[in-house]
Computed example of a mutant assay.
Amino acid sequence: MGNTQITFIGAGNMAASLIGGLCKQGVNAEHIRASDPGVAQLEALQNAYAIKTFTDNSLAVKDADIIVLAVKPQIMRQVCEQLAPHLTEQQLLISIAAGITSLSLSRWLGANKIIRCMPNTPALIQQGVSGLYATEHVTAQQREQAELLLSAVGLVVWLDTEELIDAVTAVSGSGPAYFFLLIEAITQAGVKLGLPEDIAAQLAKYTAQGAASMACQSALDATQLRLQVTSPNGTTEAAIDAFQQGGFNQLVDTAVRSAASRSQELAQQLSS
């Protein structure tokens, strides 16, 4: 990212993951700053990546090209209003806080170059996916910079409308938990069939990992891949039939819609 100066407001797990990803990509530590009231978190980042750290947000954002707002949604307004007097018109602000609309951020910050980002927890191991929405005031160069920054922890997809952030939250933001639940259930089923729990867990986890890798690497979609491994009258077909007869697809649809609806509710509460 050249000489782009990046400041992280908040030094929690997601910020640390992004910082680690940037450093692995070869971004010079001199171009990365982090600010947080937690001294222990700052020391850990400093020791790991040799970046410059601050406990004063106003000092941390001085001369920054990109400011990543990585604080909890509940304190976002307070942090933004304290930052507002210290910002310039040209700075790009990226929020990774769930539920806070760009309109609220703009009002609290007194700024309009804003990108909202919905990452997910696999970003902590550089295998995440992030949905990004940019306001009309963000330049093409700034969009490119944001994409480079977030791609340090995984895949980046752009959204045409901000309302789609709720859908991203429901599909990928909350999505890892859905797969963890399925791994739990398959593990428990394996135990009931007589497998030792540790072996059942390994089989479930590594099967999920292998299937996900195949889905990501194959030119075929998930439906075609499923059909390829589902022989007529075979064991897989018996399991798939049981899933479908139990209303599996409808249950997943209801669950994802419930997450999207809750995302909308939280956005209304947090952005008021």
Rank of each mutant, 00 (worst) to 15 (best):
I186N: 09
S95L: 04
A222L: 06
L164I: 03
V191P: 10
T223S: 12
E147Y: 01
R33T: 04
P196E: 07
Q145N: 13
P37A: 03
M14D: 06
Q145V: 04
A212M: 04
T235E: 15
L18R: 11
G128R: 11
Q90T: 05
R262Q: 11
T235S: 15
A200W: 00
A11V: 02
L266C: 09
Q269E: 12
I75P: 15
P122M: 00
K113T: 01
W158P: 06
L251F: 13
W158I: 02
A16R: 08
L105N: 12
C216N: 11
A84G: 05
I125K: 13
A242M: 08
L203C: 09
S218N: 09
L105Q: 13
L69Q: 10
V168T: 07
A255Q: 11
Q25F: 00
A84H: 03
S95T: 12
A222P: 13
L181Q: 13
L109T: 02
G131P: 14
I240A: 13
A260P: 11
D65S: 08
G175Q: 04
Q188L: 04
D63N: 13
L18D: 13
I75G: 14
S151W: 02
I94M: 09
A177M: 04
L45H: 03
T207M: 05
L148E: 14
K62C: 11
Q217I: 01
N249Y: 10
Q145D: 14
Q127S: 09
Q90C: 02
A189Y: 02
L150C: 11
T230S: 15
A208W: 06
A123F: 00
R262V: 00
P73C: 14
L109N: 05
T236W: 05
L69P: 10
T55S: 10
D241K: 15
C80I: 01
L132N: 14
E81L: 05
G10E: 01
S261N: 14
G38A: 08
V71T: 07
Q78A: 15
E184T: 05
R33M: 02
L251M: 15
L203M: 10
L93G: 09
I75D: 14
G234I: 03
I19G: 10
S58M: 12
Q250R: 14
S258H: 14
L193Y: 07
L159K: 07
I6K: 11
N233H: 13
I9Q: 08
K205G: 02
V68Q: 14
I6R: 10
V168N: 05
E197Q: 13
G210S: 08
N120D: 11
N112V: 00
M118H: 07
A211S: 11
A201P: 00
A242F: 00
C117P: 07
S271R: 11
R262T: 03
S106N: 10
R77D: 12
D160H: 01
G246K: 14
A215N: 04
Q41S: 09
L181S: 08
E136L: 09
S271C: 06
N112H: 06
S17V: 01
V229E: 15
V79I: 00
L22W: 02
P119V: 01
E162P: 06
Q268W: 03
L132Q: 12
Q141A: 09
